[in-house]
Amino acid sequence: MHRGTTIRSWASVLACTLALAGCGFGAAGGPAPVMSPAATGTPTTTPATPFTAGAALPPSPLPAGTKYLNPASGRTEVIDPAITRSAVLIGDSQSGGAAGVKSADTWVVRGLAAQGYTVRFEGNGGTGFVARTSKAANYPTGLESGKTLLPYGNPALVVVQGGGNDASQGVADDAILANAARLLKDLKASYPTSRFLFIGTLAKGATHGGGRRTHVDSLLAGFAKRNGLPFVSVGDWLTRYGVAGSLADAVHLNESGHQVLARVLAKQLAAMGLRGPAAAK
């Protein structure tokens, strides 16, 4: 074979190889590597698309609202650019609102906001550590089943509030404690470096008919102490701060009652050194 013919043959092979690579095939005939958005510089614009990664940080940039499979927790979470200024709040209707009061106006959310947190409420009325409704799971099951999607990142504070529905449904102490431990483990997997706070069960107090609700508040206080967690006991707040007359029903406050206890909670948070990013400036 002449030298010129050999050169033309190799040129043809090279051209075919480059053509195949350009169509998504490598030189060896297999698929070409797929580049991540970060590697190509192309931003992701599909918020509903889950992402996986082997590192602690997600591919960048990801738009707010993008679903991301957190390799640390093994659960799908949601990108929130404001997460470092936020308090992620797991709770019931005391935080989510009831009896005509919106979540933003509840004593829990108002108290946290007054101390400089952007509150991210993740919960449902009627639920608790074990208590659930026909539409919503209890706290740990909601996380583990993927029905509750936490924001991804490192929030300034993680707050767990509740116990009232567990009390009203007569849930046994052992079951409440077991699920509180499950929940704490789940949350620590997502937020290993964040500060935590537990808030107990709003009630009238043991000597004023607080009953099972006050007992559950004390039960959660013991759980928090054993786990080294800050705790706000609210098992006598309705009578201690004179808002029993501001109840809209048996357990939910009207708007004025929420305003009173929001100020109480804000002061308690400040006394505990749990001021939020905005308040600390």
Rank of each mutant, 00 (worst) to 15 (best):
T5E: 14
T5Q: 14
T6Y: 12
S12Q: 14
L14C: 12
A15T: 13
C16L: 15
L18I: 13
G22C: 08
F25I: 05
G26K: 07
A28M: 08
S36P: 08
S36N: 03
A38R: 11
T42L: 14
P43I: 06
T46I: 13
A48T: 14
A48Q: 14
T49V: 12
T49R: 14
F51H: 10
F51S: 03
T52K: 09
G54Q: 14
A55G: 13
P58V: 07
P59W: 11
P59Y: 08
A64G: 10
A64Q: 13
A64N: 12
G65R: 00
T66P: 02
T66Q: 00
L69E: 06
L69P: 04
L69N: 07
N70P: 03
N70L: 02
S73F: 00
T76Y: 06
A82F: 04
A82V: 13
A82M: 10
A87Y: 02
L89M: 02
G91P: 11
G91D: 09
S93D: 11
S93W: 04
Q94H: 15
G100S: 13
S103M: 14
T106C: 01
W107G: 02
V108L: 12
V108G: 08
V109C: 08
Q115Y: 03
V119Y: 07
E122P: 04
S134L: 13
G146M: 08
T148Y: 04
L150M: 10
Y152F: 14
N154G: 08
P155E: 10
A156H: 05
N165S: 03
D166W: 10
S168Y: 10
D173Y: 01
D174K: 12
I176Y: 05
L177Q: 11
R182E: 09
K185C: 06
P192E: 02
P192T: 02
P192D: 03
P192A: 00
S194R: 02
F196S: 09
G200E: 00
G205M: 11
T207S: 13
H208I: 04
H208T: 12
G209N: 07
L219A: 08
L220Y: 05
L220A: 04
L220Q: 10
V232Q: 03
G235K: 04
R240T: 15
Y241W: 12
G242H: 10
G245Y: 01
G245A: 03
G245I: 01
S246M: 14
S246G: 06
S246R: 15
S246K: 13
L247T: 07
D249A: 13
H252W: 00
E255I: 15
V260T: 15
L265M: 15
K267E: 14
L269W: 00
A270Y: 06
A271N: 15
A271F: 05
M272P: 09
R275N: 13
G276Y: 05
G276I: 13
A279H: 08
A280G: 01
A280I: 06
